[in-house]
Design a protein around this nucleic acid. Sequence first.
RNA 1: GCGAGAGUGGCGGAACUGGCAGACGCGCACGUUUGAGGGGCGUGUGGUUUAUCCGUACGGGUUCAAGUCCCGUCUCUCGCACCA
Length: 800
Amino acid sequence: MKYDFSATEKKWQARWEREGAFLAHDSSEKPKFYGLVEFPYPSGAGMHVGHIKAYSGLEVISRKRRMQGYNVLFPIGFDAFGLPTENYAIKTGTHPRKVTDNNITRFTDQLKSVGFSFDWTRVVDTTEEDYYKWTQWIFLKMFDAGLVFRDQALVNYCPSCKVVLSNEDSQGGKCDICKSDVVQKSKDVWYLRITRYAEKLLAGLDTVDYLPNVRQQQINWIGKSTGAFVNFALAGKEDTLRIYTTRPDTLFGVTFMVVAPEHPYIDKYAASIKNMDEVLAYREACAKKTEFERTQLVKEKTGVRLEGFTAKNPISGKEIPVYIADYVMMGYGTGAIMAVPAHDERDYDFAKKFGIDIIEVIKGGDIATAAYTGDGEMVNSGFLNGYRDKASSIARMIEELEKLGVGEGGVQYKMKDWAFNRQRYWGEPIPIVHCPDCGMVPVPYEELPLRLPAVQNFEPGEGGESPLAKIEAFVNCTCPRCGKAARRETDTMPQWAGSSWYFLRYIDPKNTEALADPEKLSYWLPVDWYDGGMEHVTRHMIYSRFWHSFLYDIGAVPTAEPYAKRTAQGLILGPDGDKMSKSRGNVVDPLDIVNEYGADVLRTYVLFMGDYASAAPWNENSVRGCKRFLERVSELYEMAKGEGVTPALESAFHKTVKKVSSDFEEMKFNTAIAALMELLNKIYEVGTLTRDELLTYVSLLCPVAPHLAEEINEKLGNTTLLSLSPWPTYDEAKTVDASVEIAVQINGKLRDVITLPLNAAREDAIAAAKALPKVAEAIAGKTIVKEIAVPNKIVNIVVK
RNA sequence: GCGAGAGUGGCGGAACUGGCAGACGCGCACGUUUGAGGGGCGUGUGGUUUAUCCGUACGGGUUCAAGUCCCGUCUCUCGCACCA
């Protein structure tokens, strides 16, 4: 009889739900395990199989943990604020609330049909008032702590989405959402001072277990460098020109300076710049350049000399010219540099083009042809002459700068403060009131949540104004401090806000007094294992670590770091090998697979298709292979007779328990499933197994294909859920066979194979090898130079 | 350019600390079951010039032994990118 997956899967899903099998308990004698997957954005397109793969990894781990006797929290929720929903709502005239609810319903159906063991009583939705109340609460706490500020700044603006984007959302000069070119625009912007946490975010990486590339990406993103700040005197001016350099040791080689086009001194000292027209024209040309031109045309250096501007090298006393050029960025360091053309490629290119002196201060290269960036002996460098070690030259120079009072050692980060507002409707309102007298006043905590008004028209205003600005009833208010008429902030928070703390809310999703109960937080935190996509490593991960670190500082959470361990999974590509996307038409709907093959087949396939961390194309033929596998498993029940151990299978079972147990932990699901297939093949070969062995088999399979496993468990007469039954154990001594096959080589070439008892003596192995006809023939008449025998592995006879 | 990772059959991918390369699955071939269209079962399947042969991107090296270690080169993927 064929296995009826459809009826069976529904039956077990209903029973799991009825018995609350996967509910997490807030106190328990058992050890706790908190497994977290990245909650989905409930888009209108529904889920694709990539989502299923993304949740299947920790699904297996969580199920295994329950069987190992852990109290497991494995939650799911929805990151539902965001542009696609709002755009869809505008297009179809449906309210985003409605769109979101529909999408969440659809996602929930899809997730449940796959049989994931989520605790469905803890679902969070970032767009619910009870949730975003606490998102706003955290914002206000940050405001109180001085981590929120407002600044008039050049921002990345997407003319198509009509929103200001953070640097993270506009990488490569393209809008992250619609991919159009981002333009620079001057706007009032809310910032979160994430840079104040740069050092903590960096140091914290040493205390957690992240995948090496995840860790490295975060380090690169934070971008710490050490060096020195140096102040160069400007002829005839009171101000000095302050620069940042990582190479203070090359100070004697400075032959010019460069300031960014946006540098404030240009306006401040406009009167003393003789060629101001030319400078202004250059600055305008730079502003017009798209990000694309700026990055693609990097080879060609451009710039203009600031006539009438002269700087003085504080160490050598030399007078040097100052240029304006767009290869210097206002956003990093001080927006000005000292240029050392002999030892910096960009400065070298610039100096060559503008005919500026190039002075060698480090021996080792040929500065007539190229900049030399390596190490070497210091020359032309006064007190540094003869130094060979870079670190000590730098230390000596900083000492000198500090003694003269013209500079000091310092550090810089590439990471910038987080632009934290969007001119959109479907986001958390920023709880701030603008009072003509009191200025920016936070909404009192007791007035939270500051609700998003229910309106019909939420299209963005022209020029990037928030839709909320048009709603008088929302905008007009009284100042919480002085009671006078005031106006509300009309921008909303970016999508990253709600996802920066959702894992805390799962711990206590219904709490009305706090974002979560402190006792529950200290029971469940930190998240033991967080699995997600590589694309979230630098934004979501950094942001949420920042928020968590802040919450720790104010005593709201008990751990400094939110996630103890972080792994990543690879994408599922379309059958054509391209990235799965609606526009390419290569999306596979999990429901189609569930309906045709069953949830267990889908689950097995997404884990078996390849290395979990790598991208792999969808292949429906292989899906059928998994179906065949599970069908063959379903037939084992007919084959199982008696109790105890089948001698011919004993070591195979112990080996498989060992391998599956450890492979799951390393997320090597493909080889774990392969091991189960191998054991299955062996069982069929042997032709029989015991009922005890079948129970072991389905226990191992349970995290991957739980419906089938439960069904067989029930047939075996067990009334309790297999999902909560003990994980199989193995005996190390029984994982080894009594005899082993040993390869026999002559001069390193395989000639034959012999079977010997386990741990046979070296002499016996060599003797047995020599007794083989093939070997005897090969060594006849030759001199044996060497005999190598590796126990239980190989015998190699070297002859001449 | 910088950082991280990866190159293994027709395909997805295995291979512990250097020790029988290609596990497992797909595909394919042949056979079988005589309900013939993506059905089940069985057998085979790295290559070729079928031999003490050649094979893990390419070129060298270390070793009794290299996919694995060392030196050099190329290609691809991801992330960052004029970061001073």
